[in-house]
């Protein structure tokens, strides 16, 4: 494992911890898209089915179990425990607009036409766009809490660092997966606008607010 991937994984871990911290400290899921969290939950469930078929390393297993359980816990917190604070009126992105194209694309463009491989491919495509309901919600309300901004920054950085990791693996390990790389680039590009706002506003100590 190279440094890009390790730091990328740690950013992913930090993002999830930040998200749980925001919920726990504010006792509220205001400003969070339950739909994005459902999609991320689905991403982890469909990708980590190999937990039961393929052992890689203790690190790999522990991280997968943590990502799976924390994403399911987040969905649970949004829709049950802190439901009263969930801003469903602003979380109006239609999930089927992402789920159906990703499913169709996974069936057509994959490495092998087998259930496990199609589900893995689906999870890669879905992860690339799963943040859209959250970004859509922020564009509707025009603002995001600072801790939510930190969460999004860590989450966006993770896939950006994975791109560096894939370059490294291409040059030093002769390893390349076009599906993951193209989807990963799409995923990172979706955060660019947010990265700009994060650097110009949140890092200057201001709240993330969109121009009216």
């Amino acid at each position: 494992m190279n440094a890009f991937r390790l730091v990328g994984d740690l950013c992913h871990l930090a993002a999830i911890v930040l998200l749980l911290l925001k919920i726990w400290k504010s006792r509220s899921v205001a400003g969070l898209s339950g739909k994005s969290q459902i999609l991320f939950g689905l991403v982890f469930v469909t990708r980590y089915l190999d937990l039961v078929t393929n052992f890689v390393s203790p690190y790999n297993t522990i991280m997968k179990v943590f990502f799976l359980s924390s994403s399911i816990a987040t969905v649970y917190l949004i829709y049950t425990k802190f439901k009263a604070t969930y801003d469903g009126n602003h979380d109006t992105f239609r999930m089927e607009f992402l789920l159906i194209p990703c499913a169709l694309l996974a069936i057509v463009v994959n490495h092998e036409f087998s259930p496990m491989e199609i589900l893995w491919t689906f999870s890669i495509y879905l992860e690339a766009v799963a943040i859209l309901p959250q970004l859509f919600m922020i564009s509707k309300t025009g603002e995001a809490e600072t801790i939510t901004s930190h969460y999004l920054f860590a989450l966006g950085s993770y896939r950006g660092l994975y791109i560096m990791n894939w370059l490294y693996r291409y040059y030093y390990e002769n390893n390349f997966d076009v599906i993951a790389v193209v989807a990963g680039i799409v995923q990172t590009v979706l955060y660019c606008d947010f990265f700009y706002l994060y650097i110009t506003k949140v890092l200057q100590g201001k709240k993330l607010q969109l121009p009216a």
Binding site: H12, S57, E112, S114, E117, T121, Y162, A180
Partner: peptide, 10 residues
């Protein structure tokens, strides 16, 4: 596992 070459990644 299937044929994707990043099977060891998260």
């Amino acid at each position: 596992r299937g044929k994707n070459s990043y099977h060891d990644e998260l």
